[in-house]
């Protein structure tokens, strides 16, 4: 049978979390959609019971049309060699930070990812020790990775444009009547 190992892991997890939606995407990749309130329990169980000891990354996706942020937690198991992507959705605030709970007391790598998501997207992780700016010091604007921050516009207003007048262009324009 295909994906035997992945399917047995899914069965085991589904028993504890009946409200979650599991899907085996391909070998070594399992996707879970959870209600956001259940994530902390899921993370605890991942680490303590099911041996998913490695938190590879926490990603955030800004679904502006739905008005939600999607947080994706990637867990890796060194023994079973399977990756589980746990996805949750939290509501997106237009002004100010959205809030969610931290898992940095369980996993130390989460500290950096949560700090990064806070300054880039504006999601505050309650209970985290350090939510200060890391990469963008001296930045006073809105969280830049959000979809309503438009880089083009920022560049137009902030940077100074410079035009070129090379000799070949001057010669060309003098030779004929042209404009560019």
């Amino acid at each position: 049978m295909e994906y035997e190992k992945e399917n047995s892991i899914v069965e085991m997890m589904q028993m504890q979390f009946p409200e979650a939606a599991f899907k085996v995407k391909k070998e070594r990749r399992i996707e879970v959609r959870l209600p956001s309130a259940r994530l902390y329990d899921f993370a605890v169980r991942m680490q303590k019971k099911w041996n998913f000891l490695h938190l590879s990354a926490i990603s955030c996706v800004d679904w502006i049309d739905d008005g939600e942020f999607e947080l994706v937690y990637h867990f890796w198991n060194y023994d079973e060699k399977v990756l589980v992507m746990a996805k949750i959705r939290i509501p997106r605030e237009e002004e100010g930070d959205s809030h969610f709970e931290t898992i940095s007391n369980l996993w130390q790598p989460a500290k950096f990812f949560e700090r990064d998501i806070h300054e880039m997207f504006g999601v505050y992780f309650d209970g985290s020790e350090d939510m200060e700016r890391f990469i963008l010091t001296d930045w006073n604007g809105p969280p830049p990775m959000r979809k309503d921050f438009i880089t083009r516009e920022f560049a137009l207003n902030f940077y100074h444009y410079r035009d070129y007048e090379p000799q070949w262009l001057k010669d060309m324009m003098a030779a004929g009547e042209g404009n560019e």
């Binding site: 590879s56 990354a57 990603s59 955030c60 996706v61 800004d62 130390q108 790598p109 500290k111 950096f112 990812f113």
Partner: peptide, 16 residues
């Protein structure tokens, strides 16, 4: 691409 998240190898090594 709608979102590309780059998880560099040094995100854990170089910081914490």
């Amino acid at each position: 691409p709608y979102r590309v998240h780059v998880r560099g190898a040094s995100t854990t090594h170089g910081v914490h």
